[in-house]
């Protein structure tokens, strides 16, 4: 009997390992496709940087333009928000679309690290909302990781129902306040 139970447990563990490995592979697959071109681009990115002083002497306008557009992109990245239903932390199609945009920016700017801030509206209670805010930030984080972003680049924080975007007490304000925001670190 004991042997049988042990056998079953072993079987379950092994099958779970396969399942998990499968999950991991599926998660990694898109990254693998991205990584080969990503690595050379990183090298490419560092090389012109080293050559930058020379280039600056010749054409000063060119790098100015690129930095300003990166700044713009960063501003857009930080203005992008995702919104949630009351007492929910699941991502609706619109939130997933926004997160895909965020992921594409992060993929092309691999040096950028960010913090996702989770917020709630005032209707829930304070203690529970602190937890809910974190789960919202985590949902966003997990989806970005699913889209191939290295989890080490993303930290999260919950503000619960603190710092509302709209301080009013109506449906419109609440809808705006149930959100996750993206903060680029070390700007």
């Amino acid at each position: 009997m004991m042997k049988l139970t042990k056998g079953i447990i072993l079987l379950v563990v092994i099958s779970m390992m396969f399942f998990l490995a499968g999950c991991a592979k599926r998660g990694v697959a898109p990254v693998e496709e991205v990584t080969p071109p990503a690595q050379p681009t990183q090298e490419e990115a560092t090389m012109p940087e080293a050559e930058m002083p020379k280039m600056e002497e010749e054409v000063a306008v060119e790098p100015m333009l690129t930095t300003s557009s990166l700044e713009e992109e960063m501003a857009t990245f930080e203005q992008n928000m995702i919104f949630f239903e009351f007492d929910k932390f699941s991502l609706n199609p619109e939130a997933r679309k926004t997160l895909a945009e965020q992921a594409s920016f992060l993929n092309s700017n691999p040096e950028i690290k960010l913090r996702i801030e989770g917020y709630c509206d005032e209707r829930g209670t304070l203690e529970y909302n602190l937890a809910l805010g974190e789960r919202r930030a985590k949902s966003a984080q997990e989806y970005l990781v699913f889209l191939g972003i290295n989890p080490d680049r993303i930290s999260i924080i919950s503000y619960g129902e603190e710092r509302p975007m709209d301080p009013n007490h109506n449906e419109d304000a609440w809808a705006k306040n149930r959100r996750a925001q993206f903060d680029i670190l070390g700007k």
Partner: peptide, 11 residues
Amino acid sequence: LLSGRKGINST
């Protein structure tokens, strides 16, 4: 400081 672990430390 009682707990400053990663994530929330609350209630």
